[in-house]
Write a protein that binds this DNA or RNA. Structure first.
Lengths: 113, 113
DNA sequence: CGAAGTGTAAGATATTCATCGAACACTCGG
DNA sequence: CCGAGTGTTCGATGAATATCTTACACTTCG
């Protein structure tokens, strides 16, 4: 087994859902949470694969944070990838938009909480 | 005070919110519920002011039902009006669409739960 | 190797909230 | 006026879930 150049750790691979198989109710429930909404918004303002999980400014411990990312992965809105010791994120904009047209736009475009 | 011809009962007037003053998070939370989602969908398939609260096919008692309508009113998605002994409903399509573009369409157009 | 940093997993706790039952207010029709 | 029907409010109950603490696995760096 060759050495891997940072980017394919042998940790438990994060489980991602395909947005196409996610129900509207599941997607709404995932996104109707203040912490997760903030995560999505912060992530939207960043370049893909540049934000590690711990780099978000949310008022919860890392265990809860891990849970929230799990939920966002579960609806196919966030994709994760191991990069060295860190797990970096990106929004699956196209796939999510294809399944739930306008929803992501609504989350980001919102002027208030 | 003259007699009122059915349509303006002197019951406690239902409190409606203006969608313009509702946050995205509140709207999402209101709609991310199986019962309320079904209410909205059934209501969308009916003519305005033709459905009384009790006429919906949802698996909850009338107390819970009253609560759900209260939540939907609270985000300005449903408007109510007293008509005789019954309280009839309609969707505030335009106002809601103006505040949350695409959301209502997403709720109704959904092919699954 | 050892220490620090990052994220996950499991168990316990707490809070939110959906639901129900009962009591109440109102409307309509005998 | 009385009874049936409709919807709301209140209090309590139960389930879902957000959170924390602790423990663990892995990575990187010294």
């Amino acid at each position: 087994m060759p050495n891997q150049p940072a980017g394919s750790g042998h940790r438990a691979a994060p489980v991602h859902a395909d947005p196409a198989e996610v129900s509207v109710l599941e997607a709404l429930s995932a996104v109707a949470d203040p912490v997760r909404l903030q995560l999505v918004r912060e992530l939207a303002d960043s370049e893909d694969w540049t934000r590690s999980c711990g780099s978000f400014d949310v008022p919860v411990g890392k265990a809860a944070l891990s849970h929230h990312f799990s939920v966002l992965r579960g609806v196919g809105l966030v994709e994760q990838r191991d990069m060295g010791a860190k797990r970096v994120n990106r929004l699956r904009r196209e796939e999510f938009e294809a399944r739930f047209p306008g929803l992501l736009h609504l989350l980001l475009r919102a002027d208030d909480a």
